[in-house]
Computed example of a mutant assay.
Amino acid sequence: MRRIGGRPRQIEMGDIVRVGREIGLHQLSLNAVAARLGVSSTALYRHVDGRWGLESLVGENILADLQLPDEPSQETAQHLLSLGLRLRSFILKHPGLAAYVQTLFPRGDSGRRLLAAEVEALGRRGYAADAAVVLSSAVASVAIGYAAAEDLQRQRAEGRARQEENALAAMGDDPRLGKAYWGLPDVGADEYVRLWLGAAVRAFVAAAPPGRSPEQIRAALDAAGKGL
């Protein structure tokens, strides 16, 4: 509750971070944080640079919790698949984080720490820093894309189950699609992502082996695309 009269309530960055995380990135706003802290939104501008500053403060604090350990015995493809799966899992535990990292990454120190750690991990596997940035970013983009789609589905959970049931029933009854649909294996979300992300990772590694520069990677991808 906002105070009336007397000295304005004193807030610190830690208060903003704590409340921002409680609210969550989906609902995060200057007004929401100010209301929870019992201050005016104007008071927050003494600590953060508007909406972008608030989002970065909270988002980077969340990313600081993400650890991506490197298992030296893993080959490049195994390592990158582990990276993608860990990243997806972490994002799904923090609603709104997918949009945060999709909009701009890295924004702050936590993001730079994660990227630098991955550059070092791929460096131990023979990659130059610039190629490591290209390769790890490609894998992360796919993993984040899966997480973002799942995050959006969760946001629209109300009524979704019924809509999905109706859509699947209609596809099963469709004379053009029904036979194929009923023959599909039952694959859960985790397995689906693991299988297709693994396929993408293997393709990425084939296009970007150790020793290949970003320009050479681009040329190889461009040449492969011209044959399609």
Rank of each mutant, 00 (worst) to 15 (best):
I4C: 11
G5Q: 14
G6K: 03
R9T: 15
E12P: 00
E12H: 15
G14K: 02
D15P: 06
I16A: 10
V19P: 04
G20K: 02
E22T: 08
G24F: 08
H26A: 15
N31V: 12
V33E: 07
R36N: 04
L37N: 09
L37T: 02
L37I: 02
L37Y: 03
L44S: 08
H47T: 10
W52T: 12
W52Q: 15
S56K: 08
S56W: 01
L57M: 06
L57E: 04
V58H: 05
V58G: 03
N61M: 05
L66V: 00
Q67S: 14
L68D: 15
P69L: 08
S73W: 06
S73L: 13
H79F: 14
L85N: 03
R86Q: 15
R88E: 08
F90P: 00
G96S: 07
L97R: 00
L97S: 00
A98H: 13
A99D: 14
Y100R: 01
V101M: 02
L104Q: 10
F105Q: 10
P106A: 07
R107F: 10
G108Y: 06
D109S: 14
G111C: 13
R112P: 05
A117L: 11
E118D: 06
V119C: 13
L122C: 01
G123R: 00
Y127D: 00
A128R: 10
A128I: 04
V134S: 13
V134M: 12
L135R: 07
S136P: 01
S137W: 01
S137V: 05
V139K: 02
V139N: 03
Y146V: 02
A149L: 14
E150N: 11
E150M: 12
D151S: 10
L152R: 07
Q153W: 10
R154K: 03
R154N: 07
R154Q: 08
G159L: 12
G159T: 10
A161I: 02
A161K: 03
A161G: 09
N166I: 12
N166W: 13
N166H: 14
A167I: 04
A170R: 11
G172Y: 05
G172H: 12
A180L: 14
A180W: 05
G188V: 03
G188S: 14
G188R: 05
G188M: 11
G188A: 07
W196R: 09
L197A: 07
G198D: 09
G198A: 09
A199N: 09
F204R: 04
V205P: 01
A208M: 11
P210V: 04
R212Q: 00
S213Q: 03
S213V: 05
L221V: 05
D222Y: 14
G225V: 00
K226N: 13
L228M: 11
L228P: 03
